[in-house]
Design a protein around this nucleic acid. Structure first.
Lengths: 176, 176
DNA sequence: CTAATTATCTTATTAGCTAAGATATTGACG
DNA sequence: CGTCAATATCTTAGCTAATAAGATAATTAG
C-alpha cells in the first residue's frame, strides 16, 4: 500500500464526510429557524426577513422580496405582520416616494433575540477552542461557501428559463 | 499598542465576523433549497424530506415528521406528492404493519440530483485548496456545529412549555 | 406632457399546514 | 386469551400565507 505523499482515497473520503456534515448542519439550521420562529410566535418567512434586517439594517420592501425569493405581494403581508408586532417600521423614502424602507426596531427585536442567546453562548464557547489562525481559516471557508452558493443559485436560475416554478410536467411552456 | 500574545479585541472581532459569515451562509442555504425545489417542481418541504431520505435511506413516516417538525398529517401529504412524482415508495413494515417506511427511488431522484451537480462540482473545487489537516479541521467544525445546534434546539423546546406554537402574547403560560 | 418604468399594495384563488379525530395494529396484563 | 392502552398513519375541516394579476402611485426619458 503506497503510504506516503497524497492518499487520494482518504482525501476523497474526507471530502465526502465533510459534505455530509455540511448537509446535515444545513438541514438542522432550517429546523433551528423553524423552532425559533415557532417560539417567537411568528412564521419562518417573517423571521427570515427579520434576520436579514438585523444583519443589513433597513432595506426596501423590494429588496426583501429579492433576497427571500418571495413575491412583493407576500412581502407586504410579512411586513404587515412584523409591523403589527412592533418589530419593524415602514419608512417612506422622502427622495423617492415610491420606495418603502423597512427598518428594524431594536428595542422590540431584543425580545426575539432572547431565543438566540443560548445558541450564541454555546457557539462562542465552541469557538474558544480554535486558534486565531484556525478561526481565520473557518472564516475563509464560510465566505467561500457563500460565494459559491451564490454562483450556484445564479446558475440554477439561468438553466431552464421557466421562472414560473411548478412542475412543467409535459407541457414545454406555452402562453395561455 | 501591546502587540504580542493574545489580542482579545482582534479575536472578538474575528469571532463576530465569523458569526456574520455563518449567518449569511445559513440564510443563503435556505434560498438555495427554495431555488432547487422550485426548479424541480416540488415544494421546499418535499425537497427537505427527500434530502433527508437521500442522507439516511428509508425511514418511517413518523420519523420524517420528527426531523422536519411537521405534523404526521402534513407528512402524509408530502409523501403522497413525492410518491405520485415517483421519487419515493411507501413500504409497509411486515413485522409491524402500522409502520410505513418511505424509501427513496434512486433512479428517479437522479432527475433532481441534476440540480445539485453544479454546486457539488464547485464545492469540491473549492475544497481542493485545503490540506488534509485543514479539511479535518473543517469537519470537526461542522460536526461540532451540528451538535451545538441540536442542543440549542432542545433548549428552545424546553424553555416555555408551549408546544402549541403561536404567539402567547401576554399570558405567562397557564393550563386550560 | 406623455409614455414607459419602477415600487408597492390589493384582490382572488390556491397550496399546504395544523388540530382533531378516525382507523388499524401492537403490546401489556389480569 | 381478551380487553385496554399505546403507537403509527391517514382523513377531514378550517385557516394561514403564498402566488398571479392587476391597481395605484411616483419617477424618469423623450
Amino acid at each position: 500500500m503506497k503510504s506516503t505523499l497524497s492518499r487520494p482515497k482518504a482525501r476523497a473520503a474526507l471530502m465526502q464526510e465533510l459534505e455530509h456534515a455540511v448537509r446535515r448542519s444545513s438541514a438542522l439550521g432550517v429546523i433551528f429557524g423553524q423552532t425559533v420562529a415557532s417560539r417567537a410566535g411568528i412564521s419562518s418567512s417573517d423571521l427570515e426577513c427579520l434576520d436579514f434586517l438585523n444583519l443589513e439594517g433597513r432595506v426596501t420592501a423590494g429588496r426583501l422580496a429579492e433576497v427571500t425569493g418571495l413575491t412583493t405581494g407576500a412581502i407586504t403581508g410579512v411586513v404587515d405582520r412584523l409591523e403589527k408586532a412592533g418589530l419593524v417600521r415602514r419608512e417612506r423614502d422622502e427622495s423617492d416616494r415610491r420606495k418603502v424602507f423597512i427598518a428594524p426596531v431594536p428595542e422590540n427585536i431584543a425580545r426575539i433575540g432572547k431565543f438566540y442567546e443560548h445558541m450564541q453562548r454555546a457557539v462562542l464557547k465552541d469557538w474558544e477552542s480554535y486558534s486565531d489562525a484556525e478561526l481565520k481559516l473557518l472564516l475563509r471557508f464560510m465566505t467561500q461557501s457563500y460565494t459559491t452558493m451564490l454562483g450556484a443559485i445564479e446558475q440554477l436560475k439561468a438553466m431552464m428559463e421557466t421562472p414560473e416554478g411548478k412542475a412543467p410536467s409535459r407541457k414545454p411552456a406555452k402562453a395561455p
